[in-house]
């Protein structure tokens, strides 16, 4: 895959990271267009299925962005999300996908700069890792067989 542009999915909590993304926008902070944001009511709303399905559909990297420790709008959703991410990382390894492709990050609603920084760092990290083996297989299949639904 020449000119590889990673596809990254970011599940962002409405009360922090999503607002931080807004903040980054109003502060005119640039962050890579590779990051596709999905707004969730709390980081703990993200299910293992959402994360695994993102990779199945060809994402090269995924992260869940929740509130800072102790700041969750729903008490401890962010810590539950962190535990979920850890368990899905193990599952990804079983499947043969590098665990670094999935991450949990935390930030507050006011951290527009951090949002842009995380998006940039994640994109750079995944760019270095290269396309996920699933993304490669889907593209390969697309060119030989029928179109595959790559996000």
């Amino acid at each position: 895959m020449e000119n590889f542009e990673p596809v990254i999915v970011a599940f962002c909590c409405h009360y922090c990271a999503y607002t931080a993304a807004d903040m980054a926008g109003s502060q005119r902070l640039a962050y890579p267009a590779n990051v596709k944001i999905i707004r969730v009511p709390c980081s703990s709303k993200v299910d293992a299925l959402h994360l695994v399905k993102a990779f199945e559909k060809g994402a090269d990297g995924v992260y869940v962005a929740g509130c800072l420790e102790g700041d969750c709008h729903f008490k401890n959703g962010n810590m539950r999300a962190a535990r979920l991410v850890e368990s899905v990382q193990k599952y990804l390894e079983e499947i043969g996908i590098e665990r670094e492709r999935l991450e949990m990050v935390m930030m507050s609603a006011g951290m527009g700069y951090r949002f842009a920084q995380v998006a940039t760092e994640m994109t750079e990290k995944i760019r270095k890792l290269g396309p996920s083996s699933i993304h490669v297989a889907l593209v390969g299949r697309e060119s030989t067989l029928q179109p595959a639904g790559i996000i």
């Binding site: 695994v52 199945e56 889907l138």
Partner: peptide, 15 residues
């Protein structure tokens, strides 16, 4: 759902 997804990906990887 999780297992179907995992198996599907693992098989895709092996071609």
């Amino acid at each position: 759902g999780l297992l179907a997804s995992g198996l599907h990906m693992a098989m895709l990887k092996s071609g």
